[in-house]
């Protein structure tokens, strides 16, 4: 594998993430709309905030892409004037780092649902750490906190895991992902026939 990310990898990752940033911007108000009911229904869709990382990784399949994607998605959202303000940047950074770490642990060699769901859980853990610190969620009554965490985990696996894998698979079928994949040795050998 070539050292570092090429310009094409970086640009594709960032554009995909900004596309998600647009979706986030459209969904952000929706998120707040379901939030005040207090029963944390909103947490079920929270996982969509980490989707950019796994989708971009599944498309490009290189180290650093998940982290870059999360940062890009959050800065896109930030520059468009997100209701969440600056915190999106830090959340993005932490969530991206945690997902990246999981992918690194498996040497960026596996792209199956299990690993992607683990990465989703990584992002989920990252976001929870931020929430404990920033949102005092530890001070919620125990049943409420449990509900909060369980819903967020379910949401993460649903969106960042399952849904991301499904989108990546559909994109794979269109053939567009071939653009950003490195050619293999086998492809080069085929030229000698």
């Amino acid at each position: 594998m070539q050292k570092g990310l090429k310009l094409t990898d970086i640009l594709v990752t960032i554009v995909i993430s900004i596309a998600f940033g647009i979706l986030y911007k459209i969904w952000g108000p929706l998120y707040y709309a379901v939030k005040p009911f207090g029963l944390h229904i909103d947490q079920l869709i929270y996982g969509m905030w980490f989707m950019a990382a796994t989708v971009a990784f599944l498309i490009i399949r290189k180290p650093g892409v998940a982290l870059l994607a999360e940062i890009a998605a959050s800065s896109g959202e930030f520059l468009m004037g997100s209701e969440f303000g600056l915190e999106v940047l830090l959340y993005g950074l932490i969530q991206g780092l945690f997902a990246e770490f999981i992918l690194f642990a498996f040497r960026y060699k596996r792209f199956d649902l299990f690993i992607i769901s683990l990465a989703a859980l990584g992002s989920c853990a990252g976001s929870l750490i931020m929430d404990f610190y920033k949102g005092y969620i530890g001070d919620l009554s125990t049943w409420n906190l449990t509900l909060f965490i369980v819903f967020r985990i379910i949401g993460s696996i649903l969106f960042t895991g399952l849904f991301a894998v499904s989108i990546a698979k559909a994109l794979e079928a269109t053939g567009v992902t071939n653009l950003v994949r490195s050619s293999s040795k086998k492809d080069h050998e085929a030229l000698d026939q």
Binding site: T8, I10, L11, I14, V15, I16, V176, L179, V180
Partner: peptide, 12 residues
């Protein structure tokens, strides 16, 4: 997304 990937690639 597929349009975005193509566009990004061409720009690069």
């Amino acid at each position: 997304l597929s349009q975005s990937i193509r566009r990004a690639y061409r720009i690069a």
